[in-house]
Design a protein around this nucleic acid. Structure first.
Length: 500
RNA sequence: GGGGCGUUAGCUCAGCUGGUAGAGCAGCGGACUUUUAAUCCGUUUGUCGUGGGUUCGAUCCCCGCACGCCCUACCA
C-alpha cells in the first residue's frame, strides 16, 4: 500500500522509532502491568496522602499516553487503559528526573501522545487531590507513528469515525460507552434466553435456498461443490427444523445479510436474535419479547425509562397492542372504518402518499400499506401491531377466526420496527401452498418473494408442534438503548464505499 | 434513484461573491520540579477532494466526477 497520507509528523516519529530500534528491542513484550486505572481509582480514590505515606501502594500500569505536560525537570502524563468506558480508565503519572534518572527522563521528553508506555511507581495525591502514580521506572512499550486527533476536540469527522473506528475508540468516550452498552445488551439478552431454558444454536450462514424472510440475498459460489449459495437473510427455516427435531426452545443471535439499501436504520449485515418456543403462541411471544427488551434495558442502563432523541421512551409499562386498522384509526383518525375497508379508496389514498401498491394487493395488504404511510412513524412508545394479512406473511399461522389474517405482530418503538413474531405455520400442506403462491409471485416479478423449500416442507411433514417464534433487531434495539441516531453508530465497522 | 449540505495543515476550524492561504492543537527548538486542553518564547508543515471551464488571475464563480452526512425513495 502506498503511504499516501505520510506527513512530516509521521516522518518525525519514524525517525524516533529508528533511533529506538538502534538501541535494542523497539517493541518489548516483557512489561506486565498489575493494575488497571479504573480499579486503582475505585480502590484508592478516597484515600488521603497520609494513608499512602503510612503504607506505600506500589503499582505497575500501562496504557496509551493521552496527555503530556513537561515542566522542566518534572512532568505529568495521563495514560488511558482498557479498564472502563468512562474517564475512570485514565490515570495520571508524575514523572521527575530525580525519580527515574537523567537518561530515562530525556528519552521521555521525546515520546509522543499516542505512545504506549509502562510505568512502575507508587500512588499519591497531588496538590489538587488527583490520585496519581509517582513513577520510579518508565518504559516505552509501543511507539505510535501516527498522531492522534486534536486532544480537546477529538475526532468529529463522521466518515473517519466509521472508517477508522480504532481512532474513534481511542479518543471518544461516548463511542467506547456505546459499544460497552451494546455488549451488555447482547449478554443480557443471552442470559435472559438461557434463564428461560432456551438452547443457543448456530445454523448455517450459507444457504442453498434463501428463506425465512422477504428480502434480496447476497449471492456467492461454492467452488468445490460448484453451486450457487446465498448468505442467509434469516435463520427461521433452520430454527424451525430444530423444533421439529425436538429442541423445543431454541434461539440464535447472529448476523443476517440483506442485499438492499443502506440508511440510518439499515446495514447490509445486521444482528438478529431469533427464537422459537414450542407450545406458545403470539400472545405469549409478545409478553416474552417485552420482558426480554425491558430486562436488556435495565441491565445495560439501569432503567427501563429511556430517552431517545430528547423524548422519553417508557419500556417499563405494558406495551400497547393495536390492530393495523386500530392503529390507523388512532393515529390517522381522518379515515372512516368504511373507507378503511374500501379497496378502491385505499389504493387511491396510498397512491396519494406516493407509493404504488402491487396490482394483486388485497384489502389486508392495502390496509398495511396505509398504516405504513400514516401511522408507523408515530409509534414512538412501544406498540405491538397485530393481525397481519396472510398474503404478506407466508410463514405465519392463519387465525382460526379469520383466514385472511395471521397470528402475527410487529413491535414498533420510536417509529421503527424492532421485532417481528408470530404463531408459526405448522401445517405442512398449508405451508406448501403458501410457498407455491410465493413462487407464482416471484414468477410475476416480485423479486422478494420466497423460494419453495422442499426440505423445509419435508421437515414440517414429520410434524412441528404448535410453536411461537420471533426475531428482535439487535442493532435497532441498541440504537434505542444508547440513544444513537444511526445504525452505523452501533456497528463497530459499518459498511462504507471503498475510500477514494 | 432524487434532493440538500459538506470536503482547506496530522486533528478542530477561519478564509470578505476573485489577487495562489491563516489560527489553535499536534510536531520541532528553548524556559520551567504539582500540572489538568499546563503556561511562556521561537519555529516547520498545504496538489485548498478531483477533472474541466470562465478569467490577466480561481480555495472562492460555472459544469462534471469521487467520497461523506442528512432527507427522500427502495427495504416488513
Amino acid at each position: 500500500m502506498a503511504q499516501v497520507d505520510e506527513n512530516h509528523v509521521i516522518a518525525e516519529r519514524r525517525e524516533k522509532l529508528k533511533a529506538i530500534r538502534a538501541q535494542g528491542v523497539a517493541f518489548p513484550n516483557d512489561f506486565k502491568p498489575d493494575a488497571l486505572a479504573a480499579n486503582i481509582h475505585a480502590d484508592h480514590g478516597d484515600a488521603e496522602n497520609e494513608v499512602f505515606e503510612a503504607k506505600a501502594v506500589n503499582v505497575k500500569v500501562a496504557g496509551r499516553m493521552m496527555l503530556k505536560r513537561v515542566m522542566g525537570k518534572a512532568s505529568f502524563a495521563t495514560i488511558q487503559d482498557g479498564s472502563g468506558a468512562n474517564a475512570g480508565h485514565r490515570l495520571q503519572l508524575f514523572i521527575s528526573r530525580d525519580n527515574i534518572g537523567e537518561e530515562a527522563y530525556e528519552a521521555f521528553k521525546h515520546w509522543d501522545l499516542g505512545d504506549i508506555i509502562g510505568a512502575t511507581g507508587y500512588l499519591f495525591k497531588t496538590k489538587t487531590g488527583e490520585l496519581s502514580v509517582k513513577v520510579t521506572a518508565l518504559r516505552l512499550l509501543t511507539k505510535s507513528l501516527r498522531p492522534l486527533p486534536e486532544k480537546f476536540h477529538g475526532l468529529t469527522d463522521q466518515e473517519v469515525k466509521y472508517r477508522q473506528r480504532y481512532v474513534d475508540l481511542i479518543v471518544n468516550e461516548e463511542t467506547r460507552a456505546t459499544f460497552v452498552v451494546r455488549s451488555k445488551v447482547v449478554s443480557a439478552i443471552r442470559n435472559f434466553m438461557i434463564q428461560n431454558e432456551f438452547l443457543e444454536v448456530e445454523t448455517p450462514m450459507l444457504h442453498p435456498i434463501p428463506g425465512g424472510a422477504s428480502a434480496k440475498p447476497f449471492m456467492t459460489h461454492h467452488n468445490a461443490l460448484d453451486m450457487q449459495m446465498f448468505m442467509r437473510i434469516a435463520p427461521e427455516l433452520y430454527l424451525k427444523r430444530l423444533v421439529v427435531g425436538g429442541f423445543e426452545r431454541v434461539f440464535e443471535m447472529n448476523r443476517n445479510f440483506r442485499n438492499e439499501g443502506l440508511s440510518v436504520r439499515h446495514n447490509p449485515e445486521f444482528t438478529m436474535m431469533e427464537f422459537y418456543a414450542a407450545y406458545t403462541d403470539y400472545h405469549w411471544l409478545m409478553d416474552f419479547t417485552e420482558q426480554c427488551i425491558r430486562a436488556a434495558a435495565i441491565v445495560a442502563r439501569g432503567t427501563a425509562t429511556l430517552t431517545y432523541d430528547g423524548k422519553v421512551v417508557d419500556l417499563s409499562k405494558p406495551f400497547e397492542r393495536l390492530t393495523i386498522v386500530g392503529a390507523i384509526q388512532k393515529y390517522a383518525p381522518q379515515y372512516t372504518l368504511a373507507q378503511l375497508n374500501d379497496v378502491a379508496f385505499l389504493r387511491a389514498e396510498i397512491m396519494k402518499h406516493g407509493t404504488k401498491p402491487f396490482d394483486h394487493a388485497g384489502l389486508g395488504a392495502l390496509q398495511l400499506a396505509l398504516f405504513e404511510e400514516t401511522a408507523e412513524a408515530q409509534l414512538w412508545q412501544p406498540t405491538y401491531i397485530i393481525d397481519y394479512p396472510v398474503e404478506v406473511s407466508p410463514l405465519a399461522r392463519a387465525s382460526d377466526k379469520n383466514p385472511e389474517i395471521t397470528e402475527r405482530f410487529e413491535l414498533f418503538i420510536t417509529g421503527r420496527e424492532m421485532a417481528n413474531g408470530f404463531s408459526e405455520l405448522n401445517d405442512a400442506e398449508d405451508q406448501a401452498a403458501r410457498f407455491t403462491s410465493q413462487m407464482k409471485a416471484k414468477e410475476a416479478g416480485d423479486v422478494e418473494a420466497m423460494y419453495y423449500d422442499a426440505d423445509f416442507i419435508r421437515a414440517l411433514e414429520y410434524g412441528m408442534p404448535p410453536t411461537g417464534g420471533c426475531g428482535i433487531g439487535i442493532d435497532r434495539l441498541v440504537m434505542l438503548i444508547t440513544d444513537s441516531p444511526s445504525i452505523r453508530d452501533v456497528i463497530l465497522f459499518p459498511h462504507m464505499r471503498p475510500e477514494a
